[in-house]
């Protein structure tokens, strides 16, 4: 199926600003879905709050737009009740790592079979440009007018440390690579995290003098790399891909052993 058939066209154009990377990430996601010919009825897409989380409204699946940071525990309920469904979480850097940080690490620890795509634009866009736990050190934001002295999370390391069994990073500037990274995450049985670097020209870009969307995309292209020798650049690719018993499988086995398969 054409990936564009997974869109709810009557809800477009979307609310994202001109040049926002989120649409690029969403496109990569849908192409990965289309390649796998996932049945719309068998997929649930769950999101939290923020620019990225509006994505759930634009895709033609069972969709759930929840509260800030809570997409993962809502998704947990769906997945445990319907282990046969593909449950995908679309979230942002603030949603997933600040208010939702606790849920993120615990779902990773359990190795619940969710595919979590973190749209990382390094800022809170929906509320107009406050810093997030993934805003780089000494970057600017409306709540960091003198520079952000918080140190950021490296999401890949965070996910790895918490026990995620598939961890990858992609970027809007490399849509084909991003699509593959998401696709492998969809194929992986277990907690899969894909950080998707996304440009926010309106807030992050403007606050940090990154220029237009074009310039931001160019920056991404130059400063992130798929090379295995990234040097000082931001590495893209798959960083963790390991097998570990998946949570709904374990739950099912446990229930069978306790109930005698009733």
């Amino acid at each position: 199926m054409n990936y564009k058939n997974y869109l709810r066209w009557n809800k477009l154009p979307h609310i994202w600003c001109p040049g926002c990377g989120h649409g690029i990430v969403l496109g990569a996601f849908l192409r990965a879905v289309a390649q796998r010919e996932l049945n719309k009825d068998d997929v649930a897409v769950v999101s939290g709050i923020g620019c990225s989380s509006r994505a759930a409204g634009y895709v033609d699946f069972n969709t759930l737009h929840t509260a800030h940071g809570r997409a993962i525990p809502f998704a947990t309920g769906i997945k445990l009740s319907r282990p046969d469904m593909k449950v995908i979480v679309l979230t942002g850097d603030g949603d997933a790592t600040a208010i939702g940080g606790n849920h993120f690490i615990h779902a990773a620890r359990r190795n619940l079979d969710l595919t979590v795509i973190v749209f990382n634009n390094n800022i809170y866009g929906m509320t107009s440009g406050q810093f997030s736990p993934m805003t780089p050190h000494i970057n600017f934001a409306t709540t960091a007018p003198h520079g952000n002295f918080d140190y950021p999370f490296d999401l890949v390391e965070l996910a790895k440390g918490a026990g995620a069994t598939y961890v990858a990073r992609g970027a809007a500037a490399y849509p084909r690579q991003l699509e593959k990274a998401i696709g492998q995450g969809l194929d992986h049985e277990g907690f899969s995290v894909i950080e998707a670097m996304s440009q926010c020209p309106t807030y992050y870009g403007r606050k940090n003098k990154m220029g237009t969307a074009e310039q931001m995309l160019k920056w991404q292209k130059e400063n992130a790399t798929v090379s295995s020798n990234p040097g000082e650049k931001i590495p893209l690719g798959v960083f963790v891909q390991v097998e570990r018993p998946e949570y709904t499988k374990l739950t099912g086995q446990f229930i069978d052993s306790v109930s005698g398969g009733k």
Partner: peptide, 20 residues
């Protein structure tokens, strides 16, 4: 399921309820 906190517990039961 024992969740990580009560916020998550509420969220999880809503998610489960949505599947019936």
């Amino acid at each position: 399921i024992q969740m990580e906190d009560e916020i998550a517990s509420m969220a999880a039961i809503i998610g489960a309820s949505l599947t019936g």
